[in-house]
Simulated assay, not measured.
Amino acid sequence: MLNKNFGTRKLLLAGCIFSVFLTGCQTMKERVLDSSADGQTSVELRAIQSRSFDTADKAKTMRSVIATLQDLGFVVDKADLDLGSVSATKLSGYALRMTVNVRPGATGKTMIVRANAQYNTTAVTDPKPYQDFFVSLQKSMFLTANNVD
């Protein structure tokens, strides 16, 4: 009888452990796909933060990103061409930090630019700052492509 009880307990323990792992996996899935406070999913936010530009020149794109950030009143803190990353801060009554990453697109004929803004330590999910940045960047990219000073 003792041997049968031991086997049942072992099976019950294994079932409990398995259910904990299942619950953990489900929780992780919900966090990844969960929406932010304003109802946006991470996929929707990434769509707001990213744009594709028809150029294969990473260096020109990086220069345009830096010029655009400076035109918008940001001070560039770090820029790394190899990583394709630019970090800048805007200190006009508030602390807005913007990090922009530039990487080649899948075809190699485009550059993907992704901007990530933070107000103090809170991620900016409002589309307006990103739209303003990308409108200015698009103008800068156009002027650069057409050699207009």
Rank of each mutant, 00 (worst) to 15 (best):
M141R: 14
M111P: 00
V43C: 04
S35F: 06
A88D: 14
F21A: 07
M1C: 01
I112C: 01
I17C: 02
R9I: 11
C25L: 15
I112Q: 08
E30H: 09
S35D: 08
D38R: 11
I66G: 00
I112R: 08
V124F: 00
G108I: 07
L143P: 06
L11P: 00
D132P: 02
A67C: 03
G24D: 12
C16Y: 01
K60A: 12
R9M: 14
A95R: 14
I112A: 05
L83E: 15
Y119A: 11
N120A: 06
L91N: 09
S64A: 13
G39S: 13
G108Y: 05
N3S: 07
T27D: 12
N120P: 00
L96M: 10
L45E: 03
D77E: 08
F21I: 09
A47R: 12
D126K: 05
M98P: 00
T23Y: 15
L81C: 06
A59P: 01
K78M: 02
C16L: 05
S85M: 15
M1Y: 00
T68K: 03
S140L: 10
Q131L: 11
F74R: 01
S85W: 15
E44Q: 14
T110I: 01
S52A: 06
S19T: 06
S36W: 10
S52W: 07
T122R: 02
V65N: 04
V102A: 07
T121F: 05
Q49Y: 05
G84C: 14
N120H: 03
A117F: 09
T110V: 04
L12Q: 13
L81Q: 12
T121Q: 02
G105D: 08
V75M: 06
V135D: 07
A59C: 03
V75L: 04
G108Q: 06
T41N: 12
I112F: 05
L72V: 02
S136D: 11
S140N: 15
I48T: 07
T55H: 03
L96W: 09
A67Q: 07
D38Y: 11
I17H: 01
N5V: 13
L45N: 01
D77C: 00
A37D: 04
F142H: 14
S64L: 04
G7L: 08
I112E: 08
G84E: 15
N101S: 09
L2V: 00
F21P: 02
K60E: 10
Q49P: 03
R103K: 10
L143M: 15
K128D: 06
T99D: 05
V135F: 12
G73V: 02
P129K: 04
L81T: 09
F18M: 03
L81N: 06
